[in-house]
Amino acid sequence: MTVPALSVQGLTTHFFTRAGVVKAVDGVSFDLAQGEIMGLVGESGSGKTVTGFSLLGLVDPPGRIVEGSIKLNGTELTTLSGSALRARRGREISMIFQDPIATLNPLLTIGQQMQLAIAAHERLGKRAALARCTELLTQVGIPSAEARLRAYPHEFSGGMRQRVAIAIALLHRPAVLVADEPTTALDVSIQAQILLQMRELAAETGTAMIWISHDLAVVSSLATKLAVMYAGKIVEQGPTAALLRDPRHPYTAGLIASLPAMTTPGTPLTQIRGTTPSLLSLPPGCPFAPRCDKQTEACVQKPAMTLDGPRGWRCFHPVGQTAGAPT
């Protein structure tokens, strides 16, 4: 078996705030094969973005990775020095963000920003660097790329800016790209175009992707496998099709049931009652228990991940299964 592009084991990131320790990421584990696209789904505050930042070693203080292992192409990242980690960022693992207007520097041309990203990792002649930039921009679907290198971000539309950001992130053909809700701020039609292009790019370049989103519908059209996060933990993971057809965790089932496409038009949308708990004061057992219809005494214990082939879930009372309390 080949080494996965990215292997995360028990990743735990805490924020040491004045109000207490916020367990933003609490023991997250997953593997990502080369060229694979994984959707990381969850509500706001479930820890998905912090997971993404943790992978790049970019958690801002007072946050810090307190435990766990991140292996990128077999190299452990959590024990690397700052400069060794920086040398890998952008070259082996990179990230794009939600708001393309905020990510690019408005005072530098697209070409300058791309060249800074190239120069961070290799010395290329001006012509070779220019050729690389043009190639990448063309690849992400920007017409007359060479001329556009001299343009500034404000001369692009939102969708085009996000494509530029994607091109910058892919300049060094990284093994892993973390995409933090990159299409949320865009029109639905642009969103569909970019999703399609990203899938092609992943297949072409062999770049594995972690697609972070709160929108299960968007992610499921792109990702081959899904991980559902709730209160800092992955509560269910598995291949997209199987997970959507036959969810095991009540939270996943709730998310799927609340998708508009799953209900007949005119009927009210199903919703999960209650709100996400504060990460400062989580219930002692299953964090979803207070909102769960299937809650029993067993749920005061923390459920462990039950594994079943490629699938896994953290629940004592999985949906669609008769097996009850833990044995």
């Binding site: 970019l58 801002d60 960022r89 952008g90 794009i96 961070a120 950001a165």
Partner: peptide, 14 residues
């Protein structure tokens, strides 16, 4: 604190 700086860091700039 802006995304511009975060993005530059994510691209590996020193």
């Amino acid at each position: 604190l802006t995304d511009t700086i975060k993005f530059a860091r994510a691209a590996g700039l020193s």
